[in-house]
Simulated assay, not measured.
Amino acid sequence: MKIVILNTGCSNLLSVKLAIHRLGYDVKISCDKKQIYNSDKVIFPGVGSIASVMYQLNRKFLFNVIKKIQQPFLGICLGMQALSMFSEESGGVNALNIIPENVLLLKDNRLVLPHSGWNKVNFSIDNPLFKNITNGDYFYFLHSYAMPLNDYTIASSVYGINFSSAIQKDNFFGVQFHPEKSGIAGQKILKNFLCI
């Protein structure tokens, strides 16, 4: 299987690569258009700011490449947020506009941002991404912005408010949590994605 991690310069590229290696798969980190289109699976991890990630996508001419991807695609954390239309972060940033929803600040004055640590993920939709995952399992989060619940939400979590912890539109999947840092449950998510 040909697996490509999009090279956006984010700090968690190697941790995602190692998590996939532990599952027994080879993976390439690349921004080469031909390698991306010839792959079987594409993963878009992200840590940092949406402004810097969108800058890298534009600088590396990946904006339209991503929108044309036909194979299964997984956005992780910031990679999921990049699938949105727009993010409030950094004063407002236009994103890939694959999921017709905005990413908003987690507004709850009682809770500290970022939302950092383990939290439950709840799902009611039968989706292959959650095969052999127990509803309410804990996953690791690190974020201050999130996508509200919408028509493409396949899992939700609560941090003061409900938000989308996983989404899907056609071949595009996204998870707000970090499966590469989420132990056995996270490994199952990555394995499930690679088997879609």
Rank of each mutant, 00 (worst) to 15 (best):
D26Y: 05
K33Q: 11
N162C: 11
M80L: 10
I69F: 02
L14S: 13
P179C: 08
Y37A: 12
P100Q: 13
S156R: 09
L83T: 09
V103K: 00
Q56A: 09
I154Q: 09
N97H: 08
N127S: 02
R110W: 12
K28S: 13
V65M: 02
V47E: 15
V16F: 01
M1T: 08
H21N: 13
Q81S: 05
S52T: 11
L129V: 03
S157D: 14
Y152A: 05
E89V: 05
K188D: 01
L142W: 06
M1G: 04
F163D: 03
Y25R: 08
S144D: 13
V121Y: 04
A82P: 01
N58Q: 13
N132V: 05
Y152V: 09
L190Q: 12
K131L: 04
L57W: 07
L96A: 02
I189P: 01
Q176M: 08
V65T: 03
R110L: 15
L111W: 12
K68G: 00
Q35M: 14
P148T: 15
N122Q: 12
I69G: 06
S124Q: 11
L78H: 03
L13R: 06
A82S: 10
I133S: 01
V16L: 06
F173D: 03
N171L: 09
D170L: 08
M80C: 05
P128S: 06
F172H: 03
L23P: 00
I29D: 01
M1R: 07
S87Y: 08
P179A: 12
P148E: 14
L96H: 01
L96C: 00
D126I: 07
G24Y: 03
N38V: 11
N12F: 01
Y138V: 14
A155K: 03
D26K: 12
D137M: 14
A155Y: 02
F61D: 13
Y138S: 12
K41D: 03
Q35F: 15
N192W: 10
G186M: 13
N171C: 11
N119A: 10
N119K: 13
L23C: 07
N97A: 13
R59S: 06
N38W: 12
G186K: 05
G174N: 04
G136P: 07
F61S: 14
K131E: 00
L149H: 01
Y159P: 00
N38T: 07
I154N: 03
L14W: 12
L142P: 02
A155C: 06
I154Y: 01
D108Q: 00
I154K: 00
E88Q: 08
N97L: 02
C10H: 09
F177T: 05
K107C: 09
L190F: 12
G9H: 11
V158S: 08
N135I: 11
S182G: 03
I20M: 10
P45R: 02
S49T: 15
I184Y: 06
N109C: 07
T153K: 03
P45S: 05
D137E: 15
N12I: 02
V112G: 11
K120F: 04
L23N: 10
L74S: 04
L105H: 08
I196F: 12
K188N: 06
L105N: 05
G9T: 07
S144E: 11
G183N: 06
D137I: 15
K2C: 15
H143E: 14
Q71H: 05
L6R: 09
G160L: 12
F73Q: 04
M54R: 01
